[in-house]
């Protein structure tokens, strides 16, 4: 699905190499945690996984296609198969929660009115039925995260990538969000969650069989034994 082959990434300005020689294959239905200290490159790693950044060297393949050979529109079309949840959620503040969740359908040219039943079901699944007509600035942190998750999965993507999805919410809400992600994984979706919250990872281990990766010192390694 998503493959990184000997990937290195350096910042454009200054040229500091964030990591190098990183290889990873996200297979269908797998569950990964990506851990590491702040600044280690977790967000950058996820951006490479959904084509928002291109590697300095090595190859990234999205669904079998080399990112280096894909145009911007090709990346955009691939992204419809990858749901992304950001820590800061990134909504269009002038649209309601319902419209924001339906945004991937809109940009894909789908008829949103025909998808109202699915949309309602999805909002109910994340517990936002009552808040469907609210604007994003009116939502709490937890509600925003759940709305972002709903938006990430509305196109029924193969992969869901979440960047610190529990960073701004309390423990109880974080657990609720984790349960939703685990449920998605049980539906066959590939999940990768970047987090520095090891408590969350430990708690999740009882619910799902996950590979735990650690990024730091410019390397990516399996870190299951540490936890």
């Amino acid at each position: 699905m998503i493959e990184l082959d000997n990937v290195a990434y350096s910042y454009d300005f200054g040229g500091r190499e964030l990591f190098s020689d990183v290889s990873l294959k996200l297979s269908p239905g797998s569950f990964h945690f990506l851990t590491g200290p702040s600044g280690a490159g977790k967000t950058t790693f996820l951006k490479l996984c959904y084509g928002a950044l291109r590697p300095s060297s090595g190859a990234v393949r999205l669904f079998g296609e080399d990112l280096g050979e894909m145009g911007r529109d090709g990346v955009a079309l691939s992204r419809r198969r990858i749901g992304v949840v950001h820590q800061d959620c990134q909504f269009l503040d002038h649209l309601t929660v319902r419209e924001n969740v339906a945004l991937p359908l809109m940009v894909a040219g789908e008829d949103v009115t025909a998808e109202q039943a699915n949309l309602a079901e999805l909002l109910s699944w994340v517990g936002l039925s009552e808040r469907a007509d609210a604007l994003p600035p009116e939502l709490s942190g937890g509600e925003r995260q759940r709305a972002a998750l709903a938006r990430a999965v509305i196109m029924s993507p193969d992969v869901v990538l979440a960047d610190e999805p529990t960073g701004n919410i309390d423990w109880e809400m974080a657990q609720r969000l984790m349960r939703l992600l685990v449920e998605l994984n049980r539906m066959g979706k590939t999940i990768m969650i970047a987090t520095h919250d090891l408590g969350l990872v430990r708690a999740a281990k009882s619910q799902v069989q996950a590979r735990i990766l650690r990024i730091g010192g410019g390397r990516l390694q399996l870190a299951g034994a540490d936890l």
Partner: peptide, 16 residues
């Protein structure tokens, strides 16, 4: 710019 970033995140093409 933020709107464009969100649209790209959800798979919008440049043309769209």
């Amino acid at each position: 710019a933020q709107v464009i970033a969100v649209l790209r995140l959800v798979g919008a093409t440049d043309h769209y």
